[in-house]
Amino acid sequence: MTALRLVFLALAIWGTVHPMYYFVSWFRENGFDLAGMGAAWNVNAAASGLVWDLTIAAVTLTIWVLVDTIRRRSWLDLIAIPATFCIGVSCGLPLYLFLRLRHADSR
């Protein structure tokens, strides 16, 4: 495994654990209230801007994963889509790059 793949794997793990710490903390304080979390994400213009930034990045990543996966017929790479929407772009993007580079390692 290349050093670059290890970096992407480490970033995918960090991109899972670090945001989840805050999500779990929020749920502990407020209960499992997705509507409340959505309202918190739009508490002001700065927060709304970040939400839209990440939403657009997630949609862009999803389109890229779909097109690239179909072209290369590497179906395992599709796991990056639920990772992106269930965890976040901070997990989905480095996970996809980690998976995609496995083809370069096998050459």
Rank of each mutant, 00 (worst) to 15 (best):
V89T: 09
T55C: 11
W64E: 15
V59G: 05
I56A: 03
V17A: 15
A46T: 15
G36I: 08
L6D: 10
G88H: 09
F27I: 00
L9T: 06
G88R: 12
M1F: 04
T60K: 00
W41H: 15
A80H: 05
F8G: 02
V7Y: 11
R28H: 02
A12Q: 05
V43Y: 01
D77G: 11
L9A: 05
L95M: 09
A80Q: 01
V51L: 11
S106T: 08
H103C: 12
P94K: 00
M1K: 02
L97Y: 01
S106M: 08
I79W: 01
G38S: 03
Y21C: 01
H18G: 02
V67F: 14
R71C: 06
A3Y: 07
C86G: 00
C86D: 00
D105K: 09
G38L: 08
L61T: 06
L54H: 07
R107F: 05
F85P: 10
F98N: 10
P82E: 05
G92F: 01
T84H: 07
S90Y: 10
L99Q: 02
L99H: 13
A104S: 12
I81Y: 09
S106L: 07
F32S: 00
W52F: 10
L66Q: 06
Y21H: 15
W64G: 07
M1E: 13
W26Q: 05
W52C: 11
A40E: 11
M1I: 05
N42I: 11
S48Q: 11
A45L: 06
I13Y: 10
A58S: 12
R107N: 14
L99F: 04
N44E: 00
G36E: 11
R100P: 04
P94M: 02
M1R: 07
L6M: 11
W26K: 01
D68S: 11
G92Q: 03
H103I: 06
G92M: 03
W14N: 07
T16W: 06
R107S: 13
L78A: 04
G15S: 01
T69C: 03
A45H: 08
Y96C: 03
R73F: 05
V17C: 13
Y21E: 14
R107I: 15
L99C: 08
A12N: 09
L54M: 04
D77M: 12
F32W: 00
A45K: 06
L95V: 12
C91Y: 09
A83S: 08
N30W: 13
S48P: 10
R100Q: 06
D53P: 13
L6Q: 14
T62C: 15
R73I: 15
L11C: 14
A39Q: 12
V17W: 13
W41Q: 11
L54E: 07
D77K: 13
R100L: 02
I87V: 13
P94R: 00
L9V: 09
V67I: 15
E29F: 07
A46G: 14
A35W: 01
H18K: 09
I79C: 04
F85A: 00
V59K: 04
D77T: 10
S48T: 15
L93Y: 03
I56G: 07
P19S: 10
P19T: 08
R71D: 08
G88I: 12
T2E: 14
V67H: 06
A35K: 04
F23V: 01
T55M: 12
L9P: 05
F8S: 04
